[in-house]
Amino acid sequence: MLAIRLPKEIEERLEALAAATGRTKTFYARQAILEYIDDLEDVYLAERELEEVRAGRSIPVPLEDVMKQYGLAD
């Protein structure tokens, strides 16, 4: 169960979308979260890895080397 407060404008837009399509506001809120969570996880993972590289605890691999390793180089 999740309860969220939305700005009035967003709440109104969500209500209008739900009314126009016969879906529930919950349906659209769930869809938005499902589509966005992967992107958020990728951002946090990238930020954490950047901190590791900057601290010298991780060594970056050039994209060209990765592409060669997987047979993707031109």
Rank of each mutant, 00 (worst) to 15 (best):
55 A>E: 08
67 M>E: 14
71 G>F: 03
38 D>P: 02
43 V>D: 10
66 V>K: 14
70 Y>Q: 09
40 L>Q: 13
70 Y>R: 14
47 E>Y: 02
61 V>M: 12
35 E>C: 04
47 E>F: 03
50 L>N: 04
39 D>A: 13
38 D>R: 07
36 Y>Q: 14
46 A>Y: 09
51 E>P: 00
58 S>D: 04
71 G>W: 04
46 A>T: 11
65 D>L: 10
39 D>P: 00
71 G>C: 04
39 D>V: 13
48 R>H: 11
64 E>C: 02
61 V>Q: 11
51 E>W: 05
57 R>F: 01
57 R>P: 03
54 R>P: 02
66 V>E: 13
66 V>N: 10
71 G>P: 02
63 L>P: 00
67 M>V: 07
43 V>R: 15
53 V>R: 02
67 M>Q: 14
63 L>C: 00
49 E>D: 09
48 R>K: 12
57 R>M: 03
54 R>G: 00
44 Y>G: 02
35 E>K: 11
48 R>V: 07
45 L>N: 07
59 I>S: 07
37 I>G: 01
70 Y>T: 06
55 A>F: 03
45 L>R: 13
60 P>L: 09
36 Y>T: 15
49 E>P: 02
45 L>I: 10
50 L>Q: 06
58 S>E: 08
57 R>V: 03
53 V>W: 00
61 V>P: 00
41 E>F: 08
45 L>G: 01
59 I>E: 05
65 D>E: 15
47 E>P: 01
41 E>L: 11
65 D>S: 11
68 K>N: 08
49 E>H: 05
67 M>W: 10
66 V>R: 15
53 V>S: 00
50 L>I: 03
59 I>D: 03
50 L>D: 05
56 G>H: 03
64 E>G: 04
41 E>P: 01
64 E>R: 14
38 D>E: 11
66 V>M: 14
49 E>V: 07
35 E>W: 06
38 D>W: 03
62 P>V: 04
35 E>N: 11
40 L>T: 06
68 K>R: 15
58 S>A: 15
45 L>D: 09
36 Y>H: 13
44 Y>N: 10
57 R>K: 12
43 V>A: 12
58 S>C: 04
66 V>Q: 12
39 D>T: 13
38 D>S: 10
56 G>A: 02
62 P>D: 11
70 Y>N: 10
54 R>W: 02
52 E>A: 08
40 L>D: 09
61 V>L: 12
38 D>V: 03
52 E>R: 09
36 Y>W: 15
71 G>A: 08
61 V>W: 04
69 Q>S: 12
55 A>I: 05
66 V>A: 14
52 E>D: 05
52 E>G: 01
52 E>M: 07
69 Q>N: 10
36 Y>R: 15
57 R>G: 00
